[in-house]
C-alpha cells in the first residue's frame, strides 16, 4: 500500500458518499446517469467475486464490500425509490456498446484464461468506459449540479491517483500490471475535458456548463 493508492481509494469512497448523500438529501437523482451506475455495479460485482475466495486484508475486504453495497444502493435509489426523479430521456447511452467490446477484449487480452481472471479483466476494461453514459448525459443536459460535478471530480481522481500508485510500484517494487495501467490511463483521459471545466468553472463558483 502507498499514499497514492490510499488517496485514490479514499477519493473513490468520497465520491460514492457524495453521490448517496446527494440522492438521499435531495430525494432526487436528477442529473445522475442510471446506466453508468449499472455499469459500476457490473464492474464491482465482476471484480470483487474474489471476496469469497481470496483474503487480501481487512482494508481490502472492507472497501470491496462498501463499493458493492453503495453501487447497488445507488441503483435501488435511481430505479426504484426515487425513480420518478430519474431523467430517463437524457440517459440514453447504449451501454451494450460498452459491455460487449469489454467482454470480447477480456476474452482475447488477459493475463490468464481462467474464470475469475477473465472476469477481473472484463471489469477493468468496463470500468475505463463506465463513466461515458454519465458524461454523455451531462453534455446532453448541457449542465450539472455542482454536487454532481464534485462527485465526478472525486471519481475521476480515484483512478488518476492510481496512475501515480502504478508509477510508484513500478519504481519501488518492479511490479506492474499493463492491463490495469492502460485501462486506468484511458479512464482518466476520459475525464480530462470534465477536469478542465471543473477547475476553470466549478471551483470559481460557476455552474458546470458543458458545450452540448
Amino acid at each position: 500500500m502507498n499514499v497514492f493508492r490510499l488517496l485514490g481509494d479514499l477519493s473513490h469512497l468520497i465520491a460514492v458518499i457524495i453521490l448517496l448523500q446527494k440522492i438521499w438529501h435531495t430525494r432526487s437523482c436528477a442529473g445522475i446517469s442510471g446506466k453508468s451506475q449499472v455499469l459500476f455495479a457490473l464492474v464491482y460485482t465482476a471484480r470483487y467475486l474474489d471476496l469469497v475466495s481470496t483474503y487480501v486484508s481487512l482494508y481490502n475486504t472492507f472497501m470491496k464490500v462498501i463499493f458493492l453495497i453503495s453501487s447497488y444502493a445507488t441503483i435501488y435509489f435511481i430505479y426504484m425509490k426515487f425513480r420518478a426523479t430519474y431523467d430517463r430521456n437524457h440517459d440514453t447511452f447504449r451501454i451494450e456498446f460498452l459491455i460487449l467490446p469489454s467482454v470480447l477484449l477480456a476474452l482475447l487480452i488477459n493475463h490468464q484464461f481462467s474464470f475469475l481472471e477473465v472476469l477481473w479483466t472484463f471489469s477493468i476494461y468496463l470500468e475505463s468506459v463506465a463513466i461515458l453514459p454519465q458524461l454523455f448525459m451531462v453534455s446532453k443536459t448541457g449542465e450539472a449540479e455542482s454536487i454532481t460535478s464534485h462527485y465526478l471530480f472525486a471519481l475521476g481522481s480515484y483512478r488518476g491517483l492510481y496512475i501515480f500508485n502504478w508509477i510508484y510500484r513500478y519504481w519501488s517494487e518492479q511490479h506492474y500490471d499493463i492491463i490495469a495501467i492502460v485501462a486506468g490511463v484511458v479512464q482518466t483521459v476520459l475525464y480530462c475535458d470534465f477536469f478542465y471545466l471543473y477547475v476553470t468553472k466549478v471551483l470559481k463558483g460557476k455552474k458546470l456548463q458543458l458545450p452540448a
Binding site: 473513490h12 481472471e117 492510481y162 500508485n165
Partner: peptide, 10 residues
C-alpha cells in the same frame, strides 16, 4: 507481463 497471482488492488 506480470501474471497476477491475486489482485491486491481495488
Amino acid at each position: 507481463p506480470q501474471v497476477e497471482e491475486s489482485h491486491d488492488e481495488l
